[in-house]
């Protein structure tokens, strides 16, 4: 029965392979168990943020004043640089170019990512509050520079460059800043707890 003799080890190998694969998958999830827990908490916080961000409370009462405030402060930066710009509602404009600050350009999503990470991370409330305060203020100020920068890019470069900087610079790079700030905070907290 030579064929059977040949088949047996093959079956054994296949069985071993499937066991290995199963073990690898189990190992993958076991290795990531605390991370998954952290991510679920993080996603939960972000869901709460989005529910608030798109709620009628925020839309009707908070969004417009918040965007207007950002437009006014960003305009101060532009005026300090010598630009003759004016603000009307949430629009910064001059004779040559204008930017309309809308929902999504306010930097709140990046701030929410930073704050959610801090809230879920196991640390004392005092350290969390300090992180939220410093990080939140830093991100808020950076977003004002971003808005002013977008006006300048729109003024001096083509609409294509503006669009790229709007999405890449706006969402991706700005979010990356909030992630790095979160890492800096976690490192700082770890050092503090070691001390």
């Amino acid at each position: 029965m030579p064929p059977n003799k040949k088949k047996r080890p093959k079956k054994g190998k296949q069985k071993n392979r499937s066991i290995n694969l199963k073990q690898q998958v189990n190992q993958f999830f076991q290795d990531r168990h605390p991370i998954l827990k952290f991510l679920l908490g993080f996603i939960g916080c972000m869901v709460l943020f989005y529910l608030f961000y798109y709620s009628s409370l925020y839309k009707n009462y908070l969004e417009v004043p918040f965007l207007e405030m950002q437009a006014r402060i960003s305009n101060v930066f532009l005026m300090l640089l010598g630009h003759d710009t004016v603000v009307s509602n949430a629009i910064i404009s001059s004779n040559q170019f204008s930017v309309n600050i809308k929902n999504g350009c306010d930097g709140l999503e990046a701030i929410a990512i930073f704050v959610s990470g801090i809230l879920i991370f196991p640390a004392s409330m005092k350290l969390k509050l300090r992180g939220i305060l410093w990080g939140g203020i830093t991100l808020f100020i950076l977003n004002l520079f971003r808005i002013a920068g977008l006006y300048l890019i729109g003024l001096y470069f083509s609409p294509t460059v503006f669009e790229i900087m709007h999405v890449q610079g706006g969402f991706i790079i700005f979010t990356m800043i909030s992630v790095i700030l979160l890492f800096v905070w976690i490192n700082w907290v770890s050092k503090k707890s070691q001390q």
Binding site: Q30, D31, R32, H33, P34, I35, L36, F38, L39
Partner: peptide, 8 residues
């Protein structure tokens, strides 16, 4: 985060 971070 899910792909990169692990327990250890």
């Amino acid at each position: 985060a899910w792909l990169v971070f692990r327990k250890n």
